[in-house]
Nucleic acid binder design. Structure first.
Length: 105
DNA sequence: CCGTTGACCCTTC
DNA sequence: AGAAGGGCCAACG
């Protein structure tokens, strides 16, 4: 198994529990490079199906651009279906649903 | 090997 | 408080 950055991100995203959300910066930090948040996005862009990339959003809790898996509306529907409360501003309550990154992994 | 690109984040005006 | 710009790191050609 290669230790490539993108692949490592796939594992992290796949470990995000339902009803929780993670940010690109957080995944980048767990991947080993706190500043490589862009690489995380690029990795998700190439991520295979089955990956809950819809649980990944901005540091502010806002969804990514329309270039995402299909559209921000889809992401909102998916997150709501996961049990993630949305704010009237159209953002996710990241301070409540942010993935606490279990060190037990 | 060097240059370019990218689903971001942070600092400053 | 809101908006704009630059910087960062890794993968790909």
């Amino acid at each position: 198994m290669e230790d490539t950055f993108p692949k490592r991100v796939y594992q992290l995203v796949a470990r995000i529990p339902r009803g929780k959300v993670a940010t690109y910066g957080q995944l980048a930090l767990l991947a080993g490079s706190p500043r490589a948040s862009r690489i995380v996005g690029a990795a998700l862009a190439k991520a295979p199906a089955g990956l809950p990339c819809h649980r990944v959003l901005y540091r502010d809790g806002s969804l990514c651009c329309q270039k995402a898996f299909g559209g921000p509306e889809i992401q909102r529907q998916l997150l709501e279906a996961e049990g993630v409360p949305f704010l009237p501003d159209g953002r996710v309550d990241v301070k409540v649903c942010l993935w606490e990154t279990p060190e037990d992994a």
